[in-house]
């Protein structure tokens, strides 16, 4: 049965992929397409947070700061220095990742709530620097006119459709990175740390170094998302770097499911698009989302992904009873043997 569900998962994946390819064909309205593009951008940022929080169990409240480092690296380089986009994007990811790595040296000396608050401070200081360094970042007025990427060969990035495919490509890349980490010994080390730092150390994992790596990957992905955001929106203001943005990304992850592969995409996409389409509720967005966060964390800390998994096991159990009672009986046997 496990094989069957794996099979279905593959089919579902292909279907989702094909749909995502045709989105610009169905969605002719640039405004709606833009909402979807932004959903993807936030999903990428959320994947970054998931690697640190979901896999490794470390809550960083400075994620938006690193998103901002990426966004402003692209913004400053392309606008102020007329640098081409592509190397700027690369630098954005590298800069935020290296900065994350360096800050991680200190940040990760702290643990638990101290780490959360340390990173909160880091995020806020990054925000202040960006807001106040007017010569470089344009201060509160921001940067205007971040260009679309230069074309590569025959491909031109000149409108929402081409940008859509660009960002879809990076989203898929990010998902691939997340998947390959989760399905490797590196990811197993991260998860061991999440489960118990003590036990992880006792199995020979270099906890400090693994956390540092997770932090650098996480901030690097945040920077990538920031860079993509900059080119798509074309305008950067400091608000996007501030602490509430971190909270929003956290919310996406929580709704989708911490530690799951699909969670960041589902959460970010669902929350951002749902509320964009329900424009009249825009003001109530956080009034509604706040209690949802609380309810989720109390009752469904694994988010939609966790709910889905629970549903799946229940369906499996029901099928097991109905069709293959013999099979189910056999699988219970070890339990009995062990109980005695």
């Amino acid at each position: 049965m496990a094989a069957l569900s794996k099979h279905w998962k593959k089919i579902a994946l292909v279907v989702v992929f094909v749909i995502s390819l045709f989105v610009p064909v169905f969605v002719q309205n640039d405004y709606f397409l833009g909402i979807i593009i932004l959903g993807y951008v936030w999903a990428i940022a959320t994947y970054g947070l998931n690697i640190l929080l979901g896999y490794t169990g470390q809550l960083s409240l400075g994620h938006a700061g690193f998103f901002g480092i990426g966004a402003y690296t692209v913004g400053v380089l392309t606008v102020n220095y007329e640098f081409p986009f592509w190397p700027s994007l690369l630098l954005a990811a590298i800069a935020s990742s290296v900065l994350g790595f360096l800050i991680g040296i200190f940040a990760l000396r702290t643990r638990n709530e101290y780490f959360a608050i340390f990173t909160l401070g880091v995020g806020f200081v990054i925000y202040l620097v960006i807001e106040r360094w007017e010569g470089l970042t344009g201060g509160a007025l921001g940067l205007i006119g971040v260009p679309y990427p230069e074309g590569i060969g025959p491909i031109q990035f000149d409108g929402p459709e081409s940008i859509y495919y660009l960002i879809l490509g990076f989203l898929i890349l990010t998902i691939y990175i997340a998947w390959s980490i989760a399905n490797s010994l590196v990811g197993r080390s991260f998860m061991a740390i999440r489960n118990s730092e003590e036990l992880a150390a006792a199995t020979g994992i270099n906890v400090g170094r693994a956390k540092q790596l997770a932090f650098a990957i996480s901030t690097g992905i945040a920077g990538l998302a920031g860079g993509l955001y900059a080119t798509y929106i074309g305008f950067l203001g400091p608000a996007i770097v501030n602490v509430p943005t971190t909270f929003e990304i956290l919310l996406y992850l929580l709704v989708g499911g911490m530690g799951s592969l699909s969670g960041p995409l589902v959460g970010a996409f669902l929350v951002t698009t749902l509320f964009q389409f329900l424009q009249q509720f825009e003001a109530y967005r956080l009034v509604i989302l706040g209690p949802i966060v609380v309810i989720l964390i109390i009752f469904f800390p694994k988010g939609l992904a966790g709910l889905w998994a629970a549903l799946e096991t229940r369906i499996k159990a029901m099928r097991g009873k109905g069709e293959m009672s013999g099979d189910a009986g056999a699988s219970e046997e070890p339990a009995k043997e062990e109980a005695k």
Binding site: L61, E113, F247, L250, A283, Y284, G290, V293, I297, P301
Partner: peptide, 17 residues
Amino acid sequence: HTHHLIAAVGVLFFLQS
């Protein structure tokens, strides 16, 4: 502890907005 922090963020969202 991460859950406390996240729940607190939820309360913050709610009250502020």
